[in-house]
Design a binder for these strands. Structure first.
Lengths: 351, 351
DNA sequence: CTGAAAGCGCTAACAT
DNA sequence: ATGTTAGCGCTTTCAG
């Protein structure tokens, strides 16, 4: 009787894939042994382990993580959701996360949503179906907490990064927005600036809200009047900075300095200044935020408040792994202290 | 008799996850019906479909892709392997790939390997185990074709992007290196430059090799002597450019212009020039390659040969999906024509 | 239009 | 130290 012709009554899937089973049959051992041997378990004899691994290599065996995941309910994937990977800030965060996770055998599943809450919800829903062991997310501008909470309730650890939906009780890794704002404003104040604009941000995300509140608190503290015309709302793009500085310079009483929500905005401001025949650091002072690599490369170099993006990524990676092991941990807010980096784009006020 | 206490003799996995089975039981239908209903199959009655979807939502059901993948041998994941996501060139490629794939229901699984062939091999081996439906890879500098071929032989479509291991018969999406080099050199030659350096690249990857050959061919064609001192070897980083231009300016007969392997190198060259009190476009001409977003933002703007990174990403994404559907397609080389973008960093030769 | 049954490839009890 | 067995959650024949 020809066994081979009978053992697979239907075979709709592409044949030829090597499985544990086949290794087991080739060697006349059980699949359990092969499974253990491939994972170098001490339960299996040295000699068998070597034989199994040799045959596996010979047959071109490739471990099937889908199958293992179904059994173990772990995927070794961590989903990362950010707005935009071209933005160097998110690029640095993503790179740091990827590097941290790779070190402990985890792989990044990536989703992006361009600061669009509806798209964010769709993307996160999909990522969830892959059953990642955890997720690291930067909430889209204006997004509510529902999507994140649904994920957490499905048993997947969620780490918020950079921005936070307040009060939903999920881990956060971010930079201290209030401290960052104060660092920038203190620096400019010390240089003699009194009319200081804030460019970018809005009140629909935590960073914008916190920093704008800190700005108003600072003004109040120094006895300076708040002028709404000095607060330019906008997303964190070069365009926001470029357009923003034009409007500010057209004011009857223009500012002498600007604090920007991020470095990209600051680059836009510096370009806009140059177009108006002015030079950052000489005629006008500009402070950025984040300290992306590019900030040091500009001429003049950009004075900025570093929010340590790589460090944020690393910490978020570490945190998600911790939560993977111990899901019951109480929520943590890991708020990194920002640092002022003084370069050439700021200088004493000119009358 | 209490059924609930007997139906699961062992239950080592965390309980409480909602499955198809549970939806089926709640409604008194079969899992097959639920499965079809959730995917909106026309085989199932409108009314049942609605009931099923309502219950699914109510119970907080989350589709388990690991389970589906095990059954269907498709994961809807595409693995992307690049050297470094902080590099804006790869950032743009990655973003374009992600966007293209998301449009057709595929998710990106990310791996990076910092131009290290050994790390590349490890990363690719891991990515392979997730059984992505396809892979888009930029080979590490100096890597051989074995790793890529092993993946292809395991039945996973492989698309090489930007760089290529020649002669292994796998799809490629890239820019025309020879044309790019000619575009840059013709531009400089037309401006009167005769001593033109080439900064960055090496002979262990296709782009470097091709462009350096094209450089020598151009010199020969124009009857210019080849001076090895004008060919600076190095990776595609700002540092390579910064150090490279210093060495070039120290030469007894320094060049009057430089063609760089990519924009990052060109930025480094421009910084190095500035440090020596020279200005790109006035005292020395610099041409980059790739046209990353940042190139337009410099002052002066960088003249560069665009290799259309977003377009490469988009095409690679489309190609991998095509191959997913039809794996037997003959290998294609999709070579995009580069474009010269003239900005301020080049000018007539100064004596 | 719906149900029954088998099985994707792996791991974890448990038994030997 | 190794084998037996069951089952993770889904999709797909095939029957009705």
């Amino acid at each position: 009787m020809d066994d081979a012709s009978h053992q697979h009554p239907v075979h709709p899937l592409p044949p030829g894939r090597v499985t544990l089973q086949q290794i087991a049959e080739t060697l006349g051992v059980s699949t359990a042994t092969v499974s253990l041997a491939l994972r170098a378990s001490p339960l299996v004899a040295e000699a068998t382990r070597e034989k199994v691994q040799a045959v596996a290599r010979e047959l071109g065996y490739v471990y099937n993580r889908s199958a293992a995941s179904l059994r173990t309910a772990r995927t070794n994937m961590i989903a990362v959701g950010v707005n935009d990977v071209v933005n160097p800030y998110f690029g640095e965060i993503l790179a740091a996360i990827e590097e941290t996770l790779a070190g402990s055998g985890h792989t990044v599943l990536l989703g992006t949503y361009s600061d669009d809450p509806a798209k964010q919800d769709r993307v996160l829903e999909t990522l969830k179906e892959y059953r990642p062991d955890g997720m690291i997310l930067c909430p889209a501008n204006g997004a509510g907490g529902d999507a994140l909470l649904r994920i957490a309730r499905a048993g997947i650890p969620v780490i918020q990064i950079t921005r936070e939906i307040e009060g939903i009780g999920l881990d956060v890794v971010a930079s201290d927005d209030v401290a960052a704002t104060r660092l920038a404003l203190d620096h400019l104040f010390g240089l003699g600036h009194r009319r200081i604009a804030v460019v970018g941000g809005n009140d629909t995300m935590s960073t914008g809200r916190n920093r704008r509140l800190a700005y108003r608190a600072f003004l109040a503290e120094k006895g300076l009047a708040f002028d709404p015309a000095l607060m330019v709302t906008g997303l964190g793009t070069r365009d926001t900075g470029f357009a923003g500085i034009q409007a500010l310079l057209d004011l009857a009483a223009p500012p002498t300095a600007a604090v920007c929500m991020n470095d990209l905005i600051a680059f836009g401001v510096m370009m806009g200044l140059r177009q108006r025949g002015r030079e950052a650091g000489r005629d006008f002072s500009v402070v950025g935020a984040d300290d992306v690599r590019e900030a040091a490369m500009w001429a003049p170099g950009l004075t900025t408040v570093s929010t340590h993006p790589s460090e944020q990524g690393r910490r978020a990676g570490e945190r998600v792994l911790v939560r993977t092991v111990n899901p019951a941990l109480p929520p943590a807010r890991i708020i990194l202290p920002p640092t002022l980096v003084v370069r050439g784009s700021t200088g004493p006020v000119v009358p």
